[in-house]
Each structure stands twice: as structure tokens, then as C-alpha cells.
Design a protein around this nucleic acid. Sequence first.
RNA 1: CCGGCGGUGGCGGAGCGGUCAAUCGCAUCAGACUGUAAAUCUGACGGGCUUGUCCCUGCGUAGGUUCGAAUCCUACCCGCCGGA
Length: 378
Amino acid sequence: MFEFKISKKSKKNNARLGILKTAHGEIETPAFVPVATQAAIKTLDSQEVLKTKSQILICNTFHLHLKPGEKIIKSSGGLHKFMNWPKPLMTDSAGFQVFSLGFGRDFGMGKILKEKNGGKIKSGQQPKLLKITSEGVLFRSPNDGRKIFIGPKESIKIQESLGADIIFAFDECTPPIANYAYTKKSLKLTHQWAQICLNAKKSKQALFGIVQGGKFKDLRIESAKFIGNLPFDGFGIGGEFGDDKKIMEKMINWVNKELPENKPRHLLGIGYLEDIPKIIKAGVDTFDCIVPTHYGRRGIAFTSSGELDLNKSKFLQDKKALDKKCPCFVCQNYSRSYLCHLFRAKEISALKFLTFHNLYFFNSFVENIRNAIKKGKF
RNA sequence: CCGGCGGUGGCGGAGCGGUCAAUCGCAUCAGACUGUAAAUCUGACGGGCUUGUCCCUGCGUAGGUUCGAAUCCUACCCGCCGGA
């Protein structure tokens, strides 16, 4: 079962309040989606994740295909049972790994550039370790270097075995230094793969198509029209978002203008705290991001007064809570001083405390935006 | 008191005649991270500035040998171990 209902639209911008219904329960949108790549929110158990107000998680097809393999998960009764997560789940298609293990690795870059860095990647160019063909992608396992082929059919098949509520079409996340010709050609492939995914799917899972097109307005619009016209249950907006973040908001607006109004839109892999109001205003319903969990393990805490790096020795003297306004169990029970000590002493509980707090903080942040939309204040 | 071993940067520890401000760890400091190759990675880490194929100081202390010493010799100081 899959349903999306928009209960309210902002009069000030394109933000919308909605309910996404799945077989594993409802999600109030806009919603943040924590990233559980290997069927785990690192450092937390599923009961703890529930306490962070998380409504849905996203796991990764590529990683789970390698370890432990979808057969194991299927034989355990699917991802929900396997990881003891009662609420909705998404799985990413492995499309991001086409970038992160390909050109992303070759050039040591993320999908958002800080500086303008031109179209270094030209049409026809291949990443060093991967081979991208019209059939799919020949990956090299980052674990042992062995070859792994995943194309649209394979991705869907794996995702069906995993059994998440929402699955994604296989795409290529294009790199931010790809030129127009590369991006255009890649887009064509992503579009072909989208149709193959739709035809391949036999399950009742909701399938989201992914819009690509890089930083190029005409390609983004072309992609949103093409993908938006296919019978997907919802849409992902993927890829790179330009040479700097300023384009991101514009780009999401170009795309959302073309996508069907009544279907959910998921922004893939975006969500610094400062990005969140912008992307919600641009009409995004759900979005996932590694930042709260990943940064938490690095010692960065997100608070109402900014980011704190708990590795810094100055916090040893600081007896305050991470965030005095936060009701989470970390802020209620532990001082910055103690958390700083744990990080400096390399105690593993440090990672858990910040992961918990950051997720709670992000989810609360988005919850506040939902309430504001409800009250007509956003 | 005798014998053995050793004293190198904040710490541990390489080097054992020239290419040494000195491999490498650790600690410290700074930076990065947006569909997680990520409890990770990068950089700095004697002092100085005009940040450079730059200058100064330097391998327990004081002398010596040598064109040249952290590296060899002598004395002394300190530490550890063994013997009286």
C-alpha cells in the first residue's frame, strides 16, 4: 500500500504538508530520512532510533548486496525484520555509488563543489574503476576489488528482495565536473534505465524515478518532464547541484514545477541544517542526508546555537548541555565537558551520544517546520 | 664502589661519520566531510620571518679527533640492570 496526501500548502512558498502512507505506517512530511546504509544507523539500535523521532530510514542496495547479500536479508523476512525496524524504509538503488565509487573517487570530490571547476569530465569518459554501459554498471567492490554488475534490472531485483516500502530507480548520479555533453548522454541512460526499472518491478513496493540533469537547466527540465510522465509512485531528485549551493534551490524549483503535484518528491542526499528550510520551501517532501550521523561520529553536534566540535579542548571546561533547549536524553543528562572528554578519550559512547542528539535535533528541526506550515507561518 | 646498557623533538622511538630539524607512532592544533570506500581523511607540529631549493638553534654536559660528528674518543652528570 502506498498513498500520499497533501494536507496543506504554504501560501508563502512551495512548501507542502502531507502524509505518506505505507504498509509500515505513516510519515508526516516534510520529513528527514536518516541514512542507514548497511541496515544500521551506526551506533544506535532500532529502539534508540525510534526515540530520535525518526519516521523512516534509507538503506543502500549496493552495500547490502555486497554484505550480507540480499538472499540473507530475504531469508530473514526482509529488511524490516532483519534490522528490527517497524517503520517505513527506503532503499537507494546503487545509483549514487556509480558516482561515489567512480568519478567521485577518481577526483576526490563530493557532489557539490565549493569552487567553479568546469566540465573536466567529457562525454564518453569512464571512471577508473567502473565501466558504465547501456546495460548498467560494472563496479569493483571496494572491499576486495571483485567485479559486481548492477544495472536497472539487477537493482530492482535486489531491492525487491530487500523489501523496503519505497525503492528507487537505478540512475547515474552525474559528477559536478561533468560537462554538458557528458551530463546529457548520462541523462539519456538514466531515462532508459527508469523505464526498464518500471517494467522490471513485480512487487507492490512504491518505486520512485530519479530526475537528473546536473546543473543544466534545460536538462533538469527535460528530465523532470520525462521522469514525471512515467507511472512512478514518487520522484527522487538526484545528482549534483551546481558549482555552488546557490543553484540548488533554483534547480529544485525548476524540477518541482514539472513534476506531478500530487506525488511525493524526495531530494536525494541533501540536508545540511541550513539547506533544510530552503529545500522544503522549494517543495521537497522527504530528503535524506548523512550529515547528522556522519558528523556526529566526527564530534560535531548541531545545536540551536550552531555547530559545536566536541573534539576541541575548550569544551572540557564547559559544563552546559549540548543544547539547553533540547529535551533529548543526551542534553538532559550529559555536559559538553563529559562529551568532550569521551571524544578525546576515544570512548565509543561518544559517537552514540552525538548520533542520537543530532538525529533528534534534525527531526525536531523539521517537525518545527511542519508545525509552522500548519500554522501558516512558513 | 665495580661491571653492563642507555640518555635524540610534549611523549615513545628510529638514525650510528657527510644527503639530518632529524623516518615512524602517539599526543596536540587546524581544516574537510551533503542518495556513507567515512569512529575517516588532509595539513601543521624546535624558533623566526621577506613562508623560501630562507635564516637561527639542535641529538645529556664539556672537551677532543676529523675537511665534516647525533653518529668516533675522553671526562663528567643522570637513569636502568647485575655484582659486591
